[in-house]
Computed example of a mutant assay.
Amino acid sequence: MYAWDPLLHFVSAVVGQPVYRSADPLRAMTVHVHYGGDEQDRHFDVSEYTIVLHLLAPEEGGVLEYVPRSRSSVEQDEEALRGIVEGKHQQLTRALPTVPGTLVLHSGHSSLHRVTPVHGTTPRISATLSYNSAPDGRLNEYTRQLYFGRKR
């Protein structure tokens, strides 16, 4: 699916500019499995655009929460970040439950987001596909080591 050109053209059409698959073999497409108690803390993606394809939903939780176009505000205002983390700005936060078969295209690079804790015996399983506006997008060695346990 990630190598399928019509999907690449679709992403480009939706975001309004040409996009490229990641040049980094470790982050191009990843599969995430979240078991009971697992979550993904708030973060920004390295890639500009991300497709999340939900494959399996947990009994509870595993919700993708995001604050649209929030990067510049939280990088410039520590209070804004603290308010989001503490739940004081719920009106800014959007939530997308995990529904198998759902394809979510979002700008994780510019939108602070997380996956809420998963509950139950069924894991949350999703595939993440990374895209950038430049053809040579790669992770730095630190990030590669942090997430994949290796630098290459």
Rank of each mutant, 00 (worst) to 15 (best):
T98N: 15
N132W: 12
S73R: 15
H89D: 10
L92K: 08
S70D: 02
K88T: 01
G120F: 05
E86D: 02
P123G: 05
P123D: 07
S130M: 11
Q90P: 08
G87P: 01
E75T: 11
T128E: 13
R71W: 09
P117Q: 02
S70C: 03
S72E: 15
Y131G: 04
E79D: 15
R94C: 02
S70T: 04
E78R: 14
S111G: 01
S126L: 04
S130L: 09
P117D: 02
S126K: 01
L105N: 03
T98P: 14
H119V: 15
S130Q: 13
R124D: 06
V118P: 10
D77K: 07
Q90C: 06
P123C: 03
R114I: 03
H113G: 00
P97C: 10
T98G: 13
T98K: 13
H109M: 08
T93A: 14
A134K: 14
A95Q: 08
G101H: 03
A127F: 06
T102W: 12
L92N: 05
T122M: 13
S110K: 12
A127K: 02
A134P: 08
G83Q: 08
S73C: 12
V85G: 03
G83R: 08
V104Y: 03
H119D: 13
R71F: 07
V74Q: 02
H106F: 12
G101N: 03
I125R: 01
S110Q: 14
H109K: 09
E75Q: 12
E86R: 01
E79V: 11
L81M: 09
A80G: 06
R124W: 07
E78I: 12
R94T: 03
S126W: 01
L129R: 00
T121C: 12
E79S: 14
A134W: 14
G108C: 02
L103E: 09
Q90I: 05
K88A: 06
T122S: 15
V118H: 10
V118K: 11
V104D: 08
P117L: 01
L81S: 07
A134E: 14
H113C: 05
E78A: 15
Q91G: 10
T102P: 08
T93L: 13
S133M: 11
L92Y: 07
A134N: 12
D77L: 03
H109T: 00
A134R: 15
T102C: 08
T93Q: 13
S107T: 05
P97K: 09
T122A: 13
T121Q: 15
L112S: 01
H89V: 07
L81Y: 08
H113K: 03
N132V: 06
D77V: 04
Q76W: 11
A80H: 08
L103K: 11
P97L: 12
L92F: 10
Q91L: 12
G83F: 08
Q76A: 15
T93N: 09
P100T: 02
L129I: 06
S133C: 11
V115F: 10
R124N: 05
T122P: 09
A95K: 06
K88N: 06
G120W: 01
S107N: 15
T93F: 12
S107Q: 11
A95T: 07
S133T: 10
H106T: 04
V85A: 05
S133L: 09
Q91E: 15
L92D: 04
P97Y: 12
R82N: 05
L92W: 09
R82E: 07
N132L: 10
P97M: 10
V74F: 00
K88V: 03
D77Y: 02
P123E: 02
L105D: 02
A80M: 05
